[in-house]
Amino acid sequence: MNLLLVEDDPAMRLSLTRSLERRGLRVQAVADGPAALDLWPKSQADVVLLDLSLPGMDGLDVLARGRAAGLRTPVLILTARGTVGDRILGLNVGADDYLPKPFDLDELFARIQALGRRAGTKPPSAAPATPAPSFCGMRHDPDSGAVYHEDEVLELTPREAALLRALLARPGHAIAKERLFELVFAGELDVQLEAIEVVAYRLRKRIAHTGAQLVTLRGLGYLLKAQG
């Protein structure tokens, strides 16, 4: 699935690009309205992620001009302007969905997939379907993002699920705290690195019954191993 990201904040733009590309999306990113209007008709984008607070040309103007030019790509608005009036205005101009900042990356990805399905686009897939690898009876569903233990869905928060998915990808191997922070808190602002410790603490209790152990490696990060 091809994605056009219009976001003026460099850190947010880079973080979102990396996070979404890891999930199988092909992302083209621009920082302002004129660049968006120039690239949009040439990008073959299946979904557009559009920030409203852009320099020089407001995101609503970009959307209105794109629709007036006949561009019918589904548009998902991302913005810190979360009032009801802003949402209604965006939808009336031609937006298909609206997600206020800060947002959860899992929810963003789910909304992108939903818009792609509505437009008849095949959801991103890294390879032909194969059984997900299992560790201590745990596996994750790459389509839904849910994590299962012995065919029962684990009750996890989105952040806990993101952390567990990352650890399940490399059981027995240390993963740096900074890398896990990027995966768990991608797209979120004003979050300190130490917040990953809180998520790890909670996840450790959630999976205690599975036979897996979440180990803290001082100065290195975390790893998942079998108990005992």
Rank of each mutant, 00 (worst) to 15 (best):
G172P: 00
D143A: 10
Q28G: 07
E197P: 08
E152L: 04
A35P: 06
G56A: 15
L20Q: 11
V198T: 14
L3E: 03
R87E: 08
V153I: 03
A212Q: 02
A162H: 01
P100H: 00
E182K: 05
S144A: 01
D38S: 12
D141K: 03
I196L: 10
D96S: 11
S19N: 08
P133N: 00
A80P: 05
R204A: 13
L60E: 01
V30K: 09
L78K: 05
C136R: 01
G120F: 07
R202C: 05
A129V: 13
R67L: 05
E150Q: 12
P100F: 02
L49P: 06
G219K: 13
A69G: 12
I175Q: 15
E21H: 04
L220A: 15
G187H: 10
L115F: 02
G33N: 04
R22G: 14
I112D: 01
V191R: 15
S125A: 13
G85C: 09
A161P: 08
E21D: 08
Y98N: 09
L105C: 05
D141Q: 03
L203V: 02
A174Y: 02
L3M: 00
R118M: 12
R26W: 00
R202M: 03
L167Y: 01
M12K: 02
K42R: 15
V198E: 15
L52E: 01
A186Y: 07
